[in-house]
Design a protein around this nucleic acid. Structure first.
Lengths: 321, 321
DNA sequence: AAGATGTAGTCATACGTATCACTAAACGGG
DNA sequence: CCCGTTTAGTGATACGTATGACTACATCTT
């Protein structure tokens, strides 16, 4: 029933003042506290199981050394990798990082920034309400460069150009576009670039989800001028395209080439493996965290754009003559 | 450059005392503050863009109304669903929820509980160090019932029995087990139950990852007494088994039946779709959060065990005679 | 008319920490 | 032997909030 011990309890146990405890445990006792006194304090703290009260520390210091990563969904290998990169950089600089899922459908009682005391936010541009939390230092992932918020982006246009070049190089002249039904810069760009660089003859949109994508793909593949290749905005949508092809008895890649975007796990779980753009998600996370920490230091880091890499696998081949 | 406004700034702007601001904004002004004064306070707060300082509030109240969900990895649809269920219950009770990935390889500077002030923890038994944070109210997901920590579990044994029954019912007499190379109760149980209920003739272990699973599956399928069915500890491992079968020219399900566990996204992205156990992950999250909130109220909720559901799909069939 | 009750607030304080300003003792130099 | 410096600490305070105790005034009740 005993309350959690405070630094004052430790002080009492060690026979010193609370100030001394604070100094010792903060590692600032250099030349101000005798080594043996320091040992005694540490020993007492250990014995009592003392853990500093974070709320008090945060209040006193006016900062938390913690940043918030806002992701549209937890169920994403992609954001898992972003987290890994961000966490590495944060850890090196003594920052903690917590994650909060946030999207349009969820109507949470509290906005992510109202849940915990944090110093800054790293937010995905997918998902809602990012704009509403501009009072706190913010770096946005994959944001429209026209937006004033500092951004760390992929070179989505370059990636899509690579896909278009690959397919036209193989000889494809009728390309279908399976677009993500999400209103975000990163997907708008994919559509625009593809339309410029490749002979897109038809298009459908789908939620980023397998069965919806299957349905959307079927509408394209059932058209009289069936495309010889489907360019998908996302690997998951590509997985739906595979299912549609299978349903119609089309062989991938010889009857139909399929491409994805992101190179998440399913890309290599599919058969044949998916030709897609590998985005360096982990590096994105690292760069974004670096930019955010710069911002916390009062600097204004430039926007960043990271190139992707075309992964040519088994799902693309020249069209049948 | 102006600092963030405090409740005192709001008080000054509205011409009242700080106490009154606190009362009004906490909604406790019933009968203690004139409605028009309340309006003035709210108006001033809005105008100044006041947001309460969470660190100060947490310090004063001694609690945060926030719980921490510790997951082994972000890249998991499964834990995404757990989160959804937990967040729903938390929201209904006015609690916030933050997420922290935590596993053995990551060597973060700070333990999850040292990053933010929280009231309790919901932790996956996978991943490391859960045991080290027992000073805080805790509920563990899928934990060994022998462990003293309160747990909310799946009926893993029942699920595995269902798979064993399904396969032996189809006539399989030589079953291979592709186990997860993770030392955790939930996987140990799978192995034990399967060995009891089905004719397991061989076994291999693999990391929960596609290519590693493919390699492990190949060692089983290349044996002289090749099994007619592979039971996989996890859907992702099953995806690797598909690839191994494909590499050997084996038809799924007629040359080789494959089963998974979890029913995550890839289960239906695979071709043919995977027979697996659907675990009610969202309900698990909800029940676990309910149990944790009970604990925070000083109660001691009983352990829970949730049944899974056998999803029979295209990856299982009778063996060739 | 005088005490009781109600209304509309204000005052003071504590939560636990980190840090600046201070002090008491020991020591060394001239 | 006295003053300046170093050593080893201590005391007081502020961070911003929530809340129990208090007050001043107005309105009933008998």
């Amino acid at each position: 029933m005993s309350k959690r011990p405070t630094s004052r309890d430790v002080a009492r146990a060690a026979g010193v003042s609370q100030s001394t405890v604070s100094l010792v445990l903060a590692g600032k006792s250099e030349g101000r506290v005798k080594p043996e006194t320091g040992q005694a304090v540490r020993e007492a703290a250990r014995r009592l199981g003392y853990r500093p009260n974070l709320a008090a520390r945060n209040l006193r210091l006016g900062r938390t050394r913690t940043v918030l990563l806002v992701v549209p969904t937890l169920a994403s290998p992609f954001f898992g990798a972003v987290y890994t990169g961000a966490a590495r950089v944060a850890g090196e600089r003594g920052f903690g990082i917590i994650v909060h899922p946030w999207n349009d459908d969820a109507v949470p009682a509290r906005s992510p920034v109202d849940i915990e005391a944090i110093d800054g936010v790293l937010a995905s541009s997918l998902g809602g309400g990012v704009t509403g939390m501009s009072e706190v230092p913010l770096v946005v992932l994959d944001n429209d460069p026209a937006d004033p918020a500092p951004a760390v982006n992929f070179d989505v246009a370059g990636g899509m150009r690579a896909i278009a070049g690959h397919l036209t190089g193989l000889g494809h002249r009728r390309i279908g576009h399976l677009a993500a039904a999400v209103d975000a810069w990163t997907f708008r760009v994919r559509g625009e670039v593809l339309a410029e660089e490749a002979p897109v003859v038809c298009r459908a949109t789908s939620a980023i989800e397998v069965t919806a994508a299957r349905t959307a793909a079927l509408t394209l593949l059932n058209r009289p001028d069936r495309p010889s290749a489907l360019v998908c905005d996302d690997d998951l949508i590509a997985a739906g395209a595979y299912k549609a092809a299978r349903a119609l008895g089309l062989d991938v890649p010889h009857d139909l080439s399929i491409t994805g975007f992101d190179d998440i796990l399913v890309a290599t779980a599919l058969e044949p493996e998916l030709t897609t753009i590998r985005l360096p998600a982990e590096e994105l996370g690292a760069r974004a965290m670096t930019a955010l920490l710069e911002r916390l230091d009062g600097h204004a880091p430039p926007d960043v754009s990271l190139p992707g890499e075309l992964m040519i696998r088994g799902s693309t081949a020249p069209p049948r003559p």
